[in-house]
Design a protein around this nucleic acid. Structure first.
Lengths: 237, 237
DNA sequence: CGGTACATTGAGAGATATCAACAGGCGTGG
DNA sequence: CCACGCCTGTTGATATCTCTCAATGTACCG
């Protein structure tokens, strides 16, 4: 829960050289406008399991995820947890309807974010229609993903949930690193369970079932999609 | 499934007189800008159960809901249905990440929408930062609601789901019509079930259970919240 | 080598789904 | 005006999927 703040480019870094720029909201900015952003953004490193921001905390910043994976989750008073998404490089976090964060975000493995203080960023963006439309586009895409996930949570069986998760995660990683048969799973089984609305035992059993069925092979920290077609069939059904 | 198009103000209607303007995206526009919108928007009536737009259909328009209630839902190939939300006056529909609708929308009871053809509306809004920010705000609020609903679908019991639905629906109606003890439920039990990720039987049994517990009274087309505090307690738990 | 955290497996319980019957409201038509 | 049929909602009996509780296994790390 502690927050380690290791400022890496306290002086501002050339956004033009940013590897994830085409994926992020910054893709909407011209070279000249990037200059303005460079003054606002600071790179911050987080170690595994550190919290970037927490539910109910006052929103002070926006975050552009540069490296690593984050889990975004909501907690109920009695401890039940629902992971509402996993963030990957390019994702933009911190937009809220109210002045407080509606979910918590912490690092799964080492993470680097580009942090923008809220008010200056709001001023920077307020008269840049292209940027606003880009942020809109990202928000709408996220909303669409959220709706897909509602279908999963409300209407899918455990086996379908796991298959959809594996195929979907593979596809998201493919956008970043190119397609690969073996899919890294940096998150724990508990994370997967809380994402899919299952218990850890059911996730484990379903993994085993899929392995016995020859659909996947379970490896430490990853799985191998032996039969992608069958996994996709389960996911579509 | 047929679409009844009854144009009401084919010539454009004074947006300044629109009753739901403060609730909708149009709140972000100045009087002079409203003029531009009036040329774009057309009022259209739909009868109960008519489809305003369907999943996979090419997106041709945006819709501002003026009157009535709509159900927004996604269907799986085998017929399973998940309702991703109910739309009320002021809601803005049709924003999509792709060029096709990601869910279907149809009328629950008579409905009036203000329809804006997609391209002209996009042109109209593209250089209006205030409007873009307003649309953003609405999108972020919807995303937040979607995340709340994920927690419900993934981590709540049937009784909690129903209580949350009733309290939440009451609160949404209160914004429009002022607080009331008796809550109209224009949607069917099946709609409620598909919204909460339950079966119709479980919804019915849970209603009965809450009624026997003195929390609600079941009336035709509505329920009365006899013990709001207990309902809210179930919802928060 | 032992400890700890994470993952898997098993047995049994429980919540919700499924299948089936029944009740009530409402419109139609005799 | 009443009988009939249809549709929606309720209730009951049973099935099943997933959860819960418990034990065992495994990998990593000091």
């Amino acid at each position: 829960m502690k927050i380690s703040v290791v400022a890496v480019n306290s002086g501002g870094e050339p956004c033009a050289a940013c590897s994830i720029r085409p994926l992020s909201i910054c893709a909407a900015l011209a070279r000249s406008e990037l200059r303005g952003l460079e003054h606002l953004g600071r790179h911050i490193h987080f170690a595994s399991c550190e919290t970037v921001f927490a539910q109910e905390e006052i929103t002070t910043s926006f975050y552009n995820l540069l490296e690593g994976v984050m889990r975004l989750y909501k907690l109920l008073p009695d401890g039940r947890r629902q992971i509402v998404g996993f963030a990957l490089p390019g994702d933009f976090l911190g937009m809220t309807a109210s002045s407080r964060h509606s979910f918590s975000a912490d690092a799964i493995g080492p993470v680097v974010v580009c942090r923008f203080p809220r008010a200056p960023f709001a001023r920077f963006s307020e008269d840049k229609p292209k940027l606003l439309r880009r942020i809109n586009e990202m928000a709408v895409r996220e909303l669409s993903q959220a709706q897909d996930h509602m279908v999963l949570l409300g209407r899918r069986s455990a086996e379908e949930k796991v298959a959809i998760f594996l195929v979907g995660w593979r596809d998201r990683l493919a956008v970043l690193g190119g397609p690969a048969k073996t899919v890294p799973l940096p998150m724990s089984r508990q994370d997967i369970a809380d994402y899919l609305g299952l218990t850890i035992e059911t996730v484990s059993r379903t993994f085993t079932k899929l392995e016995r069925g020859g659909v996947i092979e379970i490896l430490p920290g990853s799985i191998c999609l032996l039969d992608p077609a069958r996994a996709e069939a389960l996911a579509a059904a």
